[in-house]
Computed example of a mutant assay.
Amino acid sequence: MNKIFSLNYAATAVVVLVASACQQVQAVAEPAVLTETSAEVRLELQQQIQKAIGGPLVKLADNAYLFESQIWVESAVLRDDKGRPLDGRHMDLANLFILQIEQGQCQLKHNKSGQLFALTKAKCMAEKQRFPEK
């Protein structure tokens, strides 16, 4: 009786292992950096950020996302002619945007909302692949 129970248990364990091995592995997005940049790529990034937070196009540095997968974008502070913020102090929090790659596709993620924006002009690679020391 013990041998039959042991064989059934072993056979069940093998079936479970084979079934779990056959399931597709879920792709996980990884932090990424751009492999190159251009005015066209920066414009695409600016447009996607504008979609996420509204307002005018943000200004991005020429090297945005070349060395880091994250950037913080602060909301513009409207000022009067003397340089004072309108309507008192500016209290809006900055927005975090993360460049990531998933199954070879470059994406921009707005961390606050979780929105993902597929990038068609930008080419990127996993940050840990480009900078393994990180």
Rank of each mutant, 00 (worst) to 15 (best):
R89T: 10
V73E: 06
P56E: 13
I4Y: 06
F131Y: 15
F97V: 07
Q24D: 07
V33M: 06
H90D: 14
A13E: 14
W72E: 13
A94Y: 00
A52R: 08
K121A: 02
N111C: 02
I98V: 15
A21N: 10
D80F: 03
Q105S: 08
L93Q: 11
L17H: 13
S75E: 12
R130K: 15
M125P: 00
V25W: 05
A122P: 01
C124I: 09
V58E: 06
M91S: 12
V28S: 12
Q50G: 06
E68N: 11
L60Y: 08
V15M: 13
V28L: 12
V28Y: 05
P132C: 04
E40F: 00
W72I: 03
V41R: 00
V33I: 14
G54N: 09
L78A: 14
Q129V: 14
E68I: 01
R130C: 07
Q50S: 09
N63E: 09
L78F: 08
G88M: 11
D92K: 15
P85G: 06
I49T: 04
N111Y: 15
A52I: 07
E36T: 13
V41Q: 01
E68K: 11
L34G: 07
V77Q: 09
Q23D: 04
A94W: 00
I49G: 04
K3G: 02
M125D: 12
E40N: 05
G104V: 08
L57Y: 12
V58G: 03
I53A: 08
G104H: 03
Y65L: 01
A10P: 00
P132M: 06
S6K: 14
R89G: 03
G114P: 00
S6C: 05
A32E: 11
L96D: 05
Y9F: 09
S20E: 13
L119N: 02
Q46F: 00
N111R: 11
W72F: 11
Q107Y: 01
K3R: 10
N8I: 04
D62E: 12
I53E: 02
K112L: 14
K112N: 06
N8C: 11
T37W: 00
L96V: 14
L43G: 00
Q23T: 10
F131Q: 01
L96P: 01
A19F: 06
Q48M: 09
L86G: 03
A13I: 03
L45D: 04
H90K: 09
K82H: 08
Q48L: 03
D81M: 07
E74V: 05
N95P: 01
D81C: 02
A122L: 02
V73M: 10
T120R: 11
G55C: 06
A118C: 01
L108C: 03
E40Y: 01
A27N: 12
Q70M: 03
Y9R: 14
R130V: 05
H110Q: 04
Q47T: 07
L116G: 00
E30I: 03
V16G: 03
A126Q: 13
V58I: 14
